[in-house]
Amino acid sequence: MLDAFSRSVVSADAKTAPVGGSDLAGLRSYVRDGNKRLDAVNAITSNASCIVSDAVTGMICENTGLIQAGGNCYPNRRMAACLRDGEIVLRYISYALLAGDASVLDDRCLNGLKETYIALGVPTQSAGRAVAIMKASATALIGETNSPASGGKRFRKMETTQGDCAALVAEAGSYFDRVIGAIS
């Protein structure tokens, strides 16, 4: 497993060069925006249960066949497995966002996930849709772009200082896209 710092070390070691100059600029921005990143991780972890249950609910609303007899979220046992998987994926995304590097997500979550889902008969298209909904709500919470209209009864805004979080929103979004890409 690597983080943003050890990633630059590993790539410098391949060239037997020290880490200096331009390589350090990226790390300095990680340090400078460190508090923003911790707030972003906190935005995901504090709302994890809500993000996951909303995503699975949304996926089922769009395709109600999933909870009818023969569907992949029927009976409760399989619905519970679906919620559990959503939480696991979100957890590894929060690790990747904390580390600033996707290697933990790749190594410990995505490696072999598609093959497992195919073997178990899980519809990867539906799973990908649930991850896409998680992406929408997580990025809205990180960037504080969510609105009462889209949030409904569950609307919540994180009480963090206002600022430019575009880079972190994009980074978090890229990890969700990585999951969708890996299972579809």
Binding site: L2, I44, S94, V104
Partner: peptide, 22 residues
């Protein structure tokens, strides 16, 4: 590669929990 962040993530993953305030 051992660093503060990877140590923290490894411990959280072993417990199966999200990154905590600690």
């Amino acid at each position: 590669m051992k660093s503060v962040v990877t140590t923290v993530v490894t411990a959280a993953d072993a417990a199966g929990r999200f990154p905590s305030q600690n």
